[in-house]
Design a binder for these strands. Sequence first.
DNA 1: CCTCTTATTGAAAAAAACTTTCAATATGAT
DNA 2: ATCATATTGAAAGTTTTTTTCAATAAGAGG
Lengths: 147, 147
Amino acid sequence: MPDPKQTPMAQVLREAGYKLTQPRLAVLQVLEENAAGLNPETIYALGRTLCPSLGLVTVYRTLDLLNELGLARRVHSEHHCHSYASAGSDHHYLICESCHRVIEFPCHGLEALLESVRMQTGYVISAHLLELSGLCPDCQEHPAESA
Amino acid sequence: MPDPKQTPMAQVLREAGYKLTQPRLAVLQVLEENAAGLNPETIYALGRTLCPSLGLVTVYRTLDLLNELGLARRVHSEHHCHSYASAGSDHHYLICESCHRVIEFPCHGLEALLESVRMQTGYVISAHLLELSGLCPDCQEHPAESA
DNA sequence: CCTCTTATTGAAAAAAACTTTCAATATGAT
DNA sequence: ATCATATTGAAAGTTTTTTTCAATAAGAGG
């Protein structure tokens, strides 16, 4: 278990001039340890095991901050958009509908697609969100474990 | 201005066995007349000009219904996911960051991309959301009008 | 290591977003 | 025109998120 202050995510925070406080480190660690998208309430609960004084307000504030820095992202689903997952810088990811694990995937061909949309619509495209959902290999084999 | 009960969206509602009530038609019409994604509160305000008795609860209920029928969809953005826009059946669309217009775009090549992701990750992919944002041709020409 | 400045925090209160309940009403089938 | 019933709006309730502000802790500088 690496020093929480030395993780790549923590480094980004530090380099951006933010203090590495216990509450922030707790939220970071919770996100890093969970592949599934978590809502603020859950992050709060898990985070309190690492930093008992953690407040829910700080969870919200930290998620906003991480989101701005590109370290976390909101996970959108049909009915709710309350979850967050740790993130690389890519804006495309794949969610397992059964275990809710969120992974990023190698995505070639998207650039070409965007270019073709630009040509056809005349829009200048500055950002994208590609969210796929399906079943991960594990959940295909073990349909029962809807954890 | 066509009879609100005869629009394609209204037909879908009718064929699915739902009653074409004034409140529902008002919500439908508001969505059809606005290219931008609108939040429930705004739909409520605009809808009341068409059906003065319209209640906010009914706006929520109708949006859920339209969403299920594929006639409307939630528009996700970085900080909020409270907006809805009328929708075809495709799950990809393009949002103008200036005027907030939402359009669908011809999207070829996505199938191939999904297949390649399936091969590389082992996930069975059952749904996707592709949301692009940028500037529409109008807003490129008239940067001032941030309406 | 201390000290000090100030970013950050948590609690409480408030606001916003959404849902549930239920009696009254409007729809559309007959 | 009548009627069964899906649908409605208002009110109350719940959940989610934001604001405010005095107390605290991080880390820069000595």
